[in-house]
């Protein structure tokens, strides 16, 4: 009796406050923002100095932008499906998101190859080199998100228990939207710089 009262109270307290893991994720996102702010401000400083070179951004990056935007949509739909307890739909949306994430990284790679073939290698210190490093780091963050998605998948398949705790998928979607927005920022940033 006492325990059940405690639980109800807990749930009430929970509604008022942000879940600590979510909060931790937000601070971590702040930290990742600082890292990319450091790098992009390095570009801004560097651009004003002599010997700056630029590289044109291949069209494929528009496609990858579209892909990651769609993946943001699918993960948001996955969250909704989870809340509505439509687990089959949830699973297929999560799979779609994972595939779109991989497709995004693949497209980035193709874009890198195209820039590389246009003669811009790692030698130098212009926009092309910064693009490789910064966009590459962003792709690593997307891959980290994909790894987390896969872990969620394995966990989901490994247990027969029905788990309606929505915190993991909410964390996942927040992170996914974040890397999406980060990409948009970087894309626009490099469009302006070049």
């Amino acid at each position: 009796m006492i325990r059940s009262m405690e639980v109800t109270q807990t749930v009430n307290d929970q509604r008022k406050k942000i879940h600590p893991h979510k909060f931790t994720l937000w601070v971590a996102i702040g930290s990742i923002i600082m890292m990319f702010a450091g790098l992009t401000s390095a570009v801004v400083v560097k651009k004003e100095q002599p010997g700056w070179t630029t590289a044109s951004i291949p069209r494929v990056f528009w496609y990858s932008t579209a892909v990651i935007l769609v993946s943001s949509l699918t993960i948001q739909m996955a969250v909704k499906a989870f809340r509505d307890r439509e687990m089959l739909k949830y699973r297929s949306l999560l799979t779609t998101t994972t595939v779109l994430g991989l497709l995004f990284v693949l497209l980035q790679w193709i874009g890198f190859r195209q820039i590389w073939e246009s003669g811009i290698t790692l030698h130098g210190s212009g926009g092309g080199q910064f693009f490789y490093v910064i966009v590459g780091l962003h792709a690593l963050h997307v891959l980290g998100g994909i790894a987390a998605l896969l872990i969620m998948f394995v966990r989901m398949l490994a247990t027969n228990l029905r788990n309606y705790n929505s915190i993991p998928i909410e964390l996942m979607s927040s992170y996914w939207h974040f890397v999406d927005l980060l990409w948009l920022y970087l894309f626009i940033f490099f469009m302006i710089i070049h």
């Binding site: 390095a42 290698t121 030698h123 130098g124 210190s125 080199q129 910064f130 490093v133």
Partner: peptide, 8 residues
């Protein structure tokens, strides 16, 4: 990697 972010 042969970049020259800091080198000149």
């Amino acid at each position: 990697a042969g970049t020259s972010f800091y080198l000149s």
